[in-house]
Each structure stands twice: as structure tokens, then as C-alpha cells.
Design a protein around this nucleic acid. Structure first.
Length: 438
RNA sequence: GGAGAGGUGGCUGAGCGGUCGAAAGCGGCGGAUUGCUAAUCCGUUGUACGGAAAAUAGUCUGUACCCGGGGUUCAAAUCCCCGCCUCUCCGCCA
């Protein structure tokens, strides 16, 4: 059992070859809990690691000898110098031999290390799919319509807010266009949310949406998520699926000052997802589309379990407060092992009530990783004693549109066909209270 | 897109084949001194992986890292090739 193996000091230390060496069973158990077994790669890693250590030790000794003699040669001249140089040729060849062996070995090792899953937290429920997620709480009252209600698309078309056909004509399937108050509503929701986060101390960040491979690998979307990302192959760049990617990677390779932690960022970007493998699913309306806009909370905090948990709770609460301000009923679920991604230690999803689906639909996702992404990104900080640690990055959606427009439009519809604008958004829409027929 | 110049430690910036993990200055840290502040003086100052005794801490030691990747050489921050990035000028352009 994973729980039996669970040891604090190994929490989140994966991708750390030392921790993996000492407790491979923990990683294998993590793979099983996430329903992505990794026994074979882990065994192969240990094997390669052994070979690597041995070869490295031997070649380093040769290098040491070469450098030592090199210094002697520098001090010599004439025939004596030439003689020593002649002797060194063989040593140089032997060193090159080691490099030839080490190169491919390390390449394979590094590739495999990127596949090792992070260890899920103890209270992550067992399970395979989102149906096994565990309900934590339900907040808000579900709407009751005293009339036949319409779904967001019917409303949107009637009121000239949404044009899916126009979008398809321009850009193909799973695209959307917002018009008139629909367009204003999306901007309102995003702006409202961003301002709330700024009030809480988040730095707003407008980031590149087309990025290099490194941030994708560093945040652990790659390898593995290539099918979900749009690639600009000519340029070796990728469209991000979330601003988590550029924002988390922003300080990659740096050693931050502990005094500056936690860092709170509110990333804003358009997000692109291929939705590969989702063919035929959620095809109606604004639910599942290739391109959307999102305000994302990204936190970098100390390498400290308690702090990490506090921050996870903080960003979850922030998102809930946004939904409460928008007067939307939602529930929070503890995501099960099989529904967790490779990098996550724990994930809480927020699902907002969507009348047309007669269910809650995922609108937010709050993840913590321990230092998993930080190791890949070399994202570190120095504590007051001068010791260097990996940060703990966390993230959560603050708002993602147009998906959030589904409940906003549907829940606020009235019998006369108008849509009430939530009070919190009215000031972002010129003081308007209703969206009505033209 | 055309032409040129560059990318060195937290920062500025020297080095342009061996004695360079890298001068100097700034910043940081420790100490001394001065009613406070400021100033001055002395010392110290990267990361990763490995080894040795000690077996948390600290110490000694090896290797790697001067944008990234290849190459030349007994030896590369230094020479050559490719890539990435930055800056300047011209052109184009939301």
C-alpha cells in the first residue's frame, strides 16, 4: 500500500535520483495509484543510474590526471614538452571513450526521469476516473425555473451573443465567437476576476502564449501532452494550454530570495487545446473548445509541506469567492488517483452547476506539486541560512471563459427571455442590469 | 528581411589556448571601529554531482558548469562550425 510506504522526506522528492534510488517502490506505487504503472521505467532508471555512477567515477579520475599533467606540460618547453604531449594522446582517447559511452546513457536516463510520476498525497482517494472523485462540499442553491429554460447556446443565438456557425466558417470545429453583450460579458468576467486577485496581492501577468519547448517540459506538460498542444513546427514553438506554463517557468533557472516568497501571480492568457481524444464529446455550445481565455493563479512558495497546503487552500478559496461573487452554485471535489496528472500531488476541482447539462461541469482546477515542477525548471530559492531549496509551485484557475458563461447565461435567464447580469459584473458592463432582446 | 556588434559569477565588467571557477568594482554576508545614521577598515562570497574521513551541521578533496550543441587540441571561457538570444542601423509593419 502506498500509505504504508509514505514517508515525509520523500514527499515530492521525485525526479530526485537519490530519493528514487532509496525508495523505488514508493514511485511504483504512485504509478499504480495514478493508473499509469511505471515499474519498468523505474527499474531501467536504477540500472542506468548504476552504470552512470561507475562510468562517471572512472572518467573523472582520468580527467583529474589529464588536468594535472596538463599543468606540468604548461611549465615545460622543447623536447621534454613534446615528449609529455605525446604520452597524453592515449589518455585523451580513453577519456573520449568514456564520453561516448556516457552520452547515450545519460540521454536515456534523462528521458526516463521525465516520465516518473510525482507521489500523490495520502488523502487522494483511490479511483480511476472522474466518477471516483470524492465530493468535499456543495455551495449555493441550484436554480429552479418556473418555465421551460433554454441552454446557453439557444439564449446566445436568440440574443445575438454567440455565433458558433460564424466561428466554424472561419476556424473550424470547436471554436466560438462572442458578439455584443456576449463579448462584453467575457471581458467583464475576466477583468472582474483579475482585479479581485490584484486586491489580494497577486501581480497580474500578461504572458506569451507561444512558447519554447522548455517551459512545456518544465511544467510537465511534455513529454506526454504533445497531442493536446498545438505545435508551430517550423519555429519549434507551442501554443500554451494555460498561462501556468509561462508564469511558472518565468523564474526557471533562478535562485530566488526566501524573503520574496510566496510569489503570487495572476496569469492572463488565451489558452489553446487540441482536445485530441475528445471527438464527439461535449460538442454543443461553449463547453469544450480549442481556444479560450483564462485568469490563472500561480503561487511559488517555500519548500514546506504546511506552507504548500496553506497556499493550496488559499488559491482554492480565492476561486470559490469568485464563484460566490458571481452567484453561481458549485461543488468542490477531491480528485482521485487515476484522474491526477503525472506531476500532481493533489488536485481539487471546482465544478459549477450548468442547468443544460443537468450536472456540475469542471470550471476550476487547483493543483499542488511539491517541488516537482521546480526541479524540472530549476526554480529555487535561498533561505536565511544560505541554503538552496526548490520552490513549491501551485496553481488554480481563477476564471476561464467562455465556459463560465454557460452557467452565468443559463442560471440568470428569466421567463421573459432576458438575462440578468450578476450584480458584481454590472459595473464592468456599463451599469447594465439585463441583457435583453434587441 | 539586409548589414554589423555582442552574450562571462547576484550586478557591472576584464580575460581571448595551459598557472582561470575566472581580475577589479558594486552588491550580499561576518567582524572591527565610530553617540545614531552615514562613512571607513579587515575577512568572506556560485551551483550540481561524486569521493574521503567525520557518518544531521561543518571540513577536506575530485569533476562539471564562462548562452546551448558539436568540433579542433595533450590542454578551450579563449580557436572553428551550427543554433538560440540581445543590441545598433536600414527596410517592412499592427
Amino acid at each position: 500500500m502506498l500509505a504504508d510506504l509514505f514517508v515525509d522526506e520523500f514527499l515530492g522528492s521525485m525526479l530526485n535520483i537519490k530519493a528514487l534510488r532509496e525508495n523505488p517502490d514508493l514511485v511504483k506505487a504512485a504509478g499504480r495509484k495514478k493508473h499509469t504503472p511505471c515499474d519498468e521505467p523505474v527499474d531501467r532508471i536504477l540500472e542506468l543510474d548504476d552504470q552512470r555512477k561507475k562510468l562517471l567515477f572512472e572518467s573523472e579520475e582520468l580527467r583529474a590526471a589529464q588536468k594535472k599533467v596538463g599543468k606540468e606540460i604548461a611549465a615545460l618547453a622543447g623536447e621534454e614538452k613534446q615528449a609529455r604531449i605525446g604520452e597524453m594522446g592515449e589518455l585523451a582517447d580513453r577519456i573520449k571513450g568514456y564520453e561516448k559511452k556516457l552520452g547515450p546513457l545519460e540521454e536515456e536516463l534523462n528521458e526516463l526521469m521525465l516520465l516518473v510520476p510525482n507521489i500523490p498525497a495520502e488523502d487522494v482517494p483511490d479511483g480511476e476516473t472522474d466518477e471516483d472523485n470524492v465530493l468535499m462540499r456543495e455551495v449555493g442553491e441550484l436554480p429552479e425555473f418556473g418555465f421551460p429554460f433554454k441552454d446557453h447556446l439557444a439564449l446566445g443565438e436568440e440574443l445575438d451573443l454567440i455565433d458558433m456557425k460564424g466561428a466554424a466558417k472561419l476556424a473550424g470545429s470547436r471554436t466560438y465567437m462572442l458578439k455584443n453583450e456576449g463579448a462584453l460579458l467575457e471581458l467583464a468576467v475576466l477583468q472582474f476576476t483579475l482585479e479581485r486577485l490584484v486586491e489580494k496581492g497577486f501581480s497580474p501577468m500578461l504572458v506569451p502564449t507561444l512558447v519554447r519547448r522548455e517551459p512545456m517540459v518544465g511544467t510537465a506538460y511534455f513529454p506526454g501532452g504533445e497531442e493536446q498542444a498545438y505545435a508551430c513546427e517550423r519555429d519549434g514553438k507551442y501554443l500554451i494550454g494555460t498561462s501556468e506554463v509561462p508564469v511558472t517557468a518565468y523564474h526557471g533557472g533562478e535562485i530566488l530570495d526566501e524573503a520574496d516568497l510566496p510569489m503570487l501571480y495572476a496569469g492572463y492568457s488565451t489558452c489553446y487545446r487540441r482536445e485530441a481524444g475528445a471527438a464527439g464529446r461535449d460538442t454543443r455550445g461553449l463547453y469544450r473548445i480549442h481556444q479560450f481565455n483564462k485568469v490563472e493563479q500561480v503561487v511559488l512558495c517555500r519548500n514546506d509541506e504546511e506552507e504548500s497546503l496553506r497556499m493550496h487552500d488559499f488559491i482554492l478559496t480565492n476561486a470559490e469567492e469568485v464563484l460566490q461573487a458571481l452567484e453561481l452554485p458549485y461543488r468542490v471535489v477531491n480528485v482521485c488517483g487515476g484522474d491526477l496528472g503525472q506531476p500532481q500531488v493533489q488536485k481539487f476541482d471546482i465544478e459549477t452547476w450548468m442547468p443544460s447539462r443537468e450536472s456540475y461541469g469542471e470550471t476550476h482546477s487547483a493543483s499542488r506539486f511539491h517541488d516537482f515542477q521546480a526541479r524540472r525548471l530549476e526554480l529555487r530559492y535561498r533561505d536565511e541560512n544560505g541554503k538552496v531549496h526548490f520552490c513549491h509551485p501551485l496553481n488554480n484557475t481563477a476564471i476561464a471563459s467562455p465556459r463560465i458563461l454557460i452557467p452565468i447565461l443559463e442560471i440568470n435567464q428569466e421567463a421573459d427571455g432576458r438575462i440578468r447580469i450578476p450584480t458584481a459584473l454590472q459595473s464592468y458592463m456599463g451599469g447594465r442590469e439585463y441583457i435583453g432582446p434587441k
